[in-house]
């Protein structure tokens, strides 16, 4: 399953709930990948201060992806670029993908959930 996470971390529970699908699948040992797309790439930004919004830090949960066996973590290169984020400066390691690579990624999975 491919999970496409498109919401900023401050936009409500959507980002956390997309991540929870990945973590639950990882716990079952299922082959899955997560792609951060559009505002979803803001989840990867360093130096977030969620406490100011009375929110928990999502980054700690994102770092659990590895522990849950989800190693395929991708970010849309274009989404990063237009938001002024550089792939090398992210809080969580994610492989940047160009448009053609994203198409190939979608084709590789039988199930895709976009949240």
């Amino acid at each position: 399953m491919l999970i496409v996470s498109r919401q900023a971390p401050w936009a409500g529970p959507a980002a956390r709930e997309a991540l929870d699908i990945a973590l639950a699948g990882g716990a079952f040992g299922l082959p899955l990948a997560i792609l951060f797309l559009d505002d979803g790439v803001f989840q990867l930004q360093q130096g977030q201060a969620p406490a100011a919004l009375e929110q928990k830090n999502l980054c700690a949960n994102l770092q659990a992806l590895d522990l849950f066996g989800v190693e395929a973590v991708y970010a849309c290169q274009h989404s990063l670029h237009v938001r002024g984020l550089a792939a090398g400066t992210l809080a969580v390691e994610a492989q940047p993908l160009a448009a053609e690579a994203i198409t190939a990624l979608f084709n590789r999975f039988d199930e895709v959930i976009t949240l």
């Binding site: 919401q7 639950a24 039988d110 199930e111 949240l115």
Partner: peptide
């Protein structure tokens, strides 16, 4: 129930069809 039920259903089905994502 929990999210495991979503994964289990996706595994058991030929198609997973989602409605209302973004």
């Amino acid at each position: 129930s929990g999210l495991g039920q979503l994964h289990e259903a996706a595994q058991a089905a030929d198609r997973l069809v989602s409605f209302g994502g973004v």
